[in-house]
Design a protein around this nucleic acid. Sequence first.
DNA 1: GGGGAGAGATGCCGC
DNA 2: GCGGCATTTCTCCCC
Lengths: 228, 228
Amino acid sequence: EMIVIGCRCTVRYSGRAESTLAEGDRVVIIKRDKTLLIHQPTGSLAVNYMKPGSSHKAFLEKGVLFIKSKNLASKEWIDIVITKVYFLNSAPLEDCQSILLSGTEEDMVDMILANPEIIEAGFKPVAKEEQTKYGFIDLLGTDKNGQLTVVECKRYCADPAAVTQLRRYVEKVMSSKGLKRVRGILAAPKITANALQMLLDWGFEFRKVTPPKYFEEFDTAQSRLERF
Amino acid sequence: EMIVIGCRCTVRYSGRAESTLAEGDRVVIIKRDKTLLIHQPTGSLAVNYMKPGSSHKAFLEKGVLFIKSKNLASKEWIDIVITKVYFLNSAPLEDCQSILLSGTEEDMVDMILANPEIIEAGFKPVAKEEQTKYGFIDLLGTDKNGQLTVVECKRYCADPAAVTQLRRYVEKVMSSKGLKRVRGILAAPKITANALQMLLDWGFEFRKVTPPKYFEEFDTAQSRLERF
DNA sequence: GGGGAGAGATGCCGC
DNA sequence: GCGGCATTTCTCCCC
């Protein structure tokens, strides 16, 4: 059963942190897996929430509806005090589908494995992330001169954290292989100015690579067709 | 107006990435700020969503309800095909309150500013993040020997990324001040084994510091009282 | 609007 | 369960 309540309420939370939220109108959702969400009338994220597997008790007292949620495992709790109910729904929603997502970093890595020349002529992948013993390196390969090369992929604009991540992997490979020099390449659609500066300072390189999209092109073609 | 629809639907998305979601029961929410959320019966996050400020069109065709959302600014769109409606609500929810959160990293920094000996005897804060010209350094100070010290705070278990962040700030201060040595201290309630290894390898230090909580103690005291 | 970093991040996969 | 990391991360703040 999925329960959805449109209401006026106050919220108090304690657990990993602590919070209070004064009276206002929100939507409270309790999902089948005992997730609790409190959504304000704006924003993408829940303002307060409890993880899946929490326990929830509701009771009425002097015309006020209380919802008390607890999660013993994570030592967290939420108290909701509901002073007005605008709507309330409950339905046994069933959904056994999971989302299929493309255009992720993983897809970028697969695209480069299928077409290594995206990185540069002569680049040969040696190992994909899971297969290496050096840790979570996206792509390990050799360049046309046989030099070991670490490739770190980012699906978004690469920032300084991405550069330090690449640096860490390059240093890890250098020390574990006993090599004096290992190339580092950061592949992303964009890079910030600071990140590029850091990258060049450490002797690494940037490759502009955009994660693959499939039905965006289809839609563009289709919308062109539709115009005629 | 906040619109909440419990329904059976399929979803297609294209924008920063692309996704498809086969038929199943979900809750669709359109908020006052034109945020669109699609929630499955499990999990904390929306499976699909559109940012605030998107535009939404709904129309009925042969007993099927279509919702088409677009965001021109971010070049994203979502198509929802609704084959069954379990419930539908609309209400003019009003909420002018924001959440008050404590126990954050910011609170940790303030706690250390008020009691610098938490880091170590003789530690003197020089500048809090906003005040320094070195960038986003949580806390800059001097130790009892007058040596410049960078403190990076994490409210959670510190991971390798936190260590590289500290390293980056220490190097930034060293180069901008022309110093050969700057101390680096990572303050967090916990640290992973790998992160601690990296930290020690680079000559930095760990301090076990827990972000402050206020009414958790009150509640503990209160629950003790309630037992009597 | 871009850049940078936190978040009660969540979720996923590996060990 | 912890660890390490991606995310259509989102959100905030500052430039």
